[in-house]
Design a protein around this nucleic acid. Sequence first.
RNA 1: GGGCGGAUAGCUCAGCCGGUUAGAGCAUCGGCUUUACAAGCCGGGGGUCGCAGGUUCGAACCCUGCUCCGCCUACCA
Length: 833
Amino acid sequence: MQEKNDFIDFKDFPKNYDYKVVEEKISKYWEDNDIYKFSPEDKGKRVYSVDTPPPYVSSAHLHVGHVMSYSQAEFIIRYKRMKGFNVFYPMGFDDNGLPTERYVEKKYKINKSKITREEFIDLCLKETKIGIDIYKSLWRSVGISADYSLSYSTIDERCRKTAQKSFLDLYGKGLIERRNEPILWCPQCRTSLAQADVLLEEFAGVLYDIEFKSDEGKSLIISTTRPELLGGCVAVYANPADERYRFLEGKSVKTPLYDKNVPVKYDESVDMSYGSGLMMVCTWGDSEDVKKWKEHNLDTAIIIDRAGRLNELSGGYKGLNVKDAKKSIVENLRKMSLVKSEKPLNHNVGVHDRCSTPVEFILAEQWFVKILENKEKFIDAGNRMSWHPQFMKTRYDEWINNLKWDWNISRQRFYGVPFPVWYCSECGEAVVAHEAELPVDPAVSMPINAKCAKCGGSKFIPENDVMDTWMTSSLTPLINSLWSYEDAESKKIYNTIYPMGLRPQAQEIIRTWLFYTVVKSVYHTGDIPFKDVMISGWGLDRNGKKMSKSLGNFVSPEEITVKYSADALRYWASKANLGQDLRFSEEDVANGRRLTIKIWNAVRFLITNAESDFNPYEKNIKELKLSRIDEWILTEFENTLKSCGNYMESYEYSLCMRTLQDFFYNSYCDNYLEIIKNVFWDESEENSERKKTVLNIMYFISLNAVKMFAPFMPFITEELYLSFYKRYEKDKSIHISFWPEFRNDLVFNDSLKYSAILLNILDASRKLRTNLNLHQNHKVHKILIQALNQDYIEIINDISGDIRSAVRAERLIFSDKADFKTSDDNILIALEK
RNA sequence: GGGCGGAUAGCUCAGCCGGUUAGAGCAUCGGCUUUACAAGCCGGGGGUCGCAGGUUCGAACCCUGCUCCGCCUACCA
């Protein structure tokens, strides 16, 4: 399989690591050999299933932050694979719904009134396909180990079928219903929204004190930030305990400009100390208006239309949008001296998360999934999952506790999964599809043999709305496990995959993807959707701001992988622990590249010193004649392995990488290899056994360390494995080889007291050489050592060979002439050329 | 308003179930080029651990309060 880096003889092993050639070659090797393929038939292995996040395919926004979060999940997934799990790791693409529509609208500058639904959907599908290809090529280039034969796209047949089955199931269980009530509405996107689609943004507004009049003509001041809604005012409220306004009981007041009489009502929720203690209720300015309108059966005076413009109720302001209307009304009120004061006020306004337009309320018939009545069940499900990091669970709990609306799943859009619903043209009764006919597009087909259950009518009109995109995305564990299919094969997969093992995802979609997925799983299966949740932080730019397309502060992954390699970019991703934001740092990526080069050279040192008859398994390590320093490095390695394993088990991949890198650089390369390397400079016969021993240890440690680097740096580790280690190993990829087993028999606790002294002497000798301007490898005739402690003399005698090797001295002599201090007060050294 | 996370060397971060002179990488300064690696190696300098109290023989670590940064959440119209 080798091309450029092929080598026959060990001495020809390439000096430089050519990542550009290797990464492409290795990607192809993985594909050609199905390295990451899930095998449903493998009975011997436990299954580890991953509920992969389907990113939006409007993919022009891809940046290194995306690579970061996918890589972080991947570190764990690759680790699990090496721990022997049968990994189910699909790739998903979310391409239905509003984000794609908005992307297409912008890209093609579409005017929705001049394009048919079909033409528009075609464009969405076309962009979807382009997006998927871009994603795939990026994931491939950074080494994401998904099994692409398990891919799904949220607009494909399986997803449409699953989403519609979910609807039918919930409908059948009475958990879904159609209601006519005020709903959250985006005037920009012209669609209704769910609470989760609305974010709060702080606006610098103005609080206007406006004069109303009582029946007797008494002046009443009402504070409001939304005077443009005056025409929709249906009541004025005071707190029942507020003596100032008791006299208004049973009376009405007159609104300014419109001179409309509205009733005065009382409610505990009115804050007496806010403004004048009077508040106006309009239909509808905010959720408080909706609440009072419902509880007190107030009149309805809808003043804003679906485009966010004022209607005829506003009188002369008809056709103006909210912003202009406010300006104009305030101007007129000022002229009439009805604005008594104006105070700047920062307040939070709900905006649509996709377009940042302030949301309004309108009245419409919509489908709702009931969620308010089962909050406790969802909290309980959250408690049954493991959260990494744990504190992210707080956000989940808080979101549920603060829910105020059932989940509105109707969207007045084109591109999405249709409702499997028609309405009787006679009486309006809803008729739902049969499960057997899913997926169904009610605009294209009619209900099978259906008669209206209410009036017996046989003519139907289709539901034109599409379902909220989260209605589909929330089903990913059920989509992946083929829940909507009844055949035996699918049922088997379902039982194998569900509930899933891991859900990796970003923090900002806890309230949507995560929460809705729990809702669906609890409702459909009574179970949790997955056992472990890992929530990644954000990729930040160099200045600490969240990377995003709209801010233009994003770094393109291609640019970085071309310059530094994919392994190096992944190394950067490993720098942040789970849930932490990570600044992009080109220096860290460069460090990643340095690490790959270090690994390459350390392994190359072994390869070029091994003879062609080298056999690492000729003897078990325990049978070798180990020196104290060999025992020490084995001990250090085993301790590192143990820590790293524990870190990976607890999702602390960052600490694993740090620990491993520290071991590899400091213990293995800078000390062990430096101490033993001169054994290869000496051709004498008496050295040959020592050489073999050292080669075996180097093989053992470097292979296992390379395996441990493999989840983080899949390309270089695979290249080293295939081009060298595989001559002695059986697996066809390092990524399906076993993560090293901890071996207690290779922990030599005694060795630490020897190594401490040796390293202390080596350290001092390095300082001394620096002081003497002496090259570190330059041989010296003698090392003089003064040990002020009898135990030390014995120890030093015991390891004198290792010491001489380490400090490149021909002889070791105890002498009180040694005067250079080491960090141990009981040892002094000197070097003699 | 409530909550969560963070504040440790010039920069990015470890350490935080209390225990010897607080660590790493980068940056900086000095030295070293036949013998794995100059995209390298060796060495040096650099920190009153956000602030103020408290508990303790002992606090970066535990407790209380505060300040600043980021985020989540909330009906002050």
